Amino acid sequence: MWPLSTRAQVALAQSHSMRARAVVTSAAYGVLEVPISGGSVEIDATSKARRSATLQADPRWWPRSPKDLLSPYGSVCQVDYGIVLPGGGTEWVPLMIGYLDETSRERPVTSSGHIAVKLVDAAVHVAEDRLDVPAQTITNATTVSEIARLVRETLGGWVELRDLTGSSAIAAVIVIERERWDAVEKLADSLGGEAFFDPVGRLVVRPQPTLNQNPVWTVRTGNGGNLLSVKDKLSREQVYNRVVASGQRTDGVPAVYATATDTTSPAYYGGPFGKKPRFYTSELLTTVAQCQTTADSLLQRVRGIATQVEVELLVNPALDAGDVITVADPEAGETRHIIDKLSIPLAPDATQSITTRSDEMPAET
């Protein structure tokens, strides 16, 4: 969750106004703020591009050439959400820095018409930069430094790295055939972590979020509540209660492996749910310890998905995928959830939707 001042938190708990801004940087125009009338930013921890957005801009900004400001040929856009504070002033919350991916319009243009501008985060730019020829990880380089190198080779050395793993593990020497971002994700997996770009464009490498983290926000019904509706879903789809992580060898030597088993959730291994293992293989896993770390982290992703909650609530633009929140509902009681997906609308009359996962079953009614 992006840090908020006390005044901003007070404003979010009551009726307040909002603003949105989009600042575009291009080679031809430099830096310019483009007025937007709506749209939304989507954040999805299960997608390669964690952040994406669609902005509604005035038709007069329709690009006439590839060098124009809103042409999807290199322009970069920063999107911010403004919380209008009681007593005056605006606190701006960064939502994403994205590359323009598509600009579209419908004609004839009416008085209320707009052009739609789609943004994607830098992970897509890195994924598009596939290797011309196979390359090898650098001998004795750390896993984190190799993640940063692969990203900076595409985006430039200015990319700030925020390493929350504290790991000094040496990366396995492997050949990267072609897919640059896939290699980044596999390197992060080998640490039991994840790699993504945060709202201000920093490359973040961090451990997988777990329900053991402290909740950063509470959504609730009733007087003073911010929860408008709840949709619960219980499903076996994408639920696994054991992960087997193994290395990959081509020389006939048996590969190392390790398992992580769910023994505590309602879908625990060998219980009424049954046995449902998930297998993960990577050439980056060369020791049992690496396999165990990876298996443990992957289990965190898939063990608590049996209970999904979709909530619609008043907007909190500071929330992010991976945040732990508390959902307080009279029928289900209080449950703790990890945010998988959320939408942040850029219009004052819109509400926010969040999809979460949890291994805390709702109370029976």
Rank of each mutant, 00 (worst) to 15 (best):
V204H: 05
I170P: 01
F197W: 05
E146S: 14
S167G: 10
S167I: 05
L131C: 04
L187M: 11
V184P: 00
V126H: 06
I174E: 07
D129F: 08
V151N: 09
Q136W: 14
V133P: 03
L100Q: 02
I97M: 11
K118G: 03
I147T: 04
V124E: 12
L155I: 15
E185L: 14
K186Q: 15
E179L: 02
P86A: 12
L100T: 01
L119K: 00
L85T: 06
T110Q: 14
G87R: 11
T90C: 14
P108T: 09
R107P: 00
V133D: 09
R130Y: 03
V151Y: 09
R180A: 12
V133R: 11
E102N: 13
T142Q: 10
I174L: 03
A171W: 00
S167Y: 03
T142S: 15
E179S: 15
S190K: 03
G87K: 13
D198W: 07
G166Q: 06
S145C: 02
A148Y: 02
V84D: 04
V144W: 01
R162G: 03
R152F: 10
S104E: 13
D182Y: 06
S190M: 01
V151C: 11
P134F: 10
V144L: 06
L95A: 06
G87E: 10
E177W: 08
Y99I: 04
T110A: 15
E194Y: 00
A141G: 03
S112T: 15
S168G: 14
F196S: 08
L131Y: 13
M96S: 06
T143I: 13
E102L: 15
A183Q: 04
T110C: 05
S112D: 13
V124L: 05
V175D: 15
L119M: 05
H114P: 01
G98K: 04
L119G: 01
L100P: 00
L211E: 12
V120G: 02
V117C: 05
R162T: 10
V109W: 12
N140F: 08
T139D: 08
P108N: 09
I147R: 07
E91Y: 11
G88P: 09
L191G: 05
D182E: 15
S145F: 02
V144A: 08
I115H: 07
V133I: 09
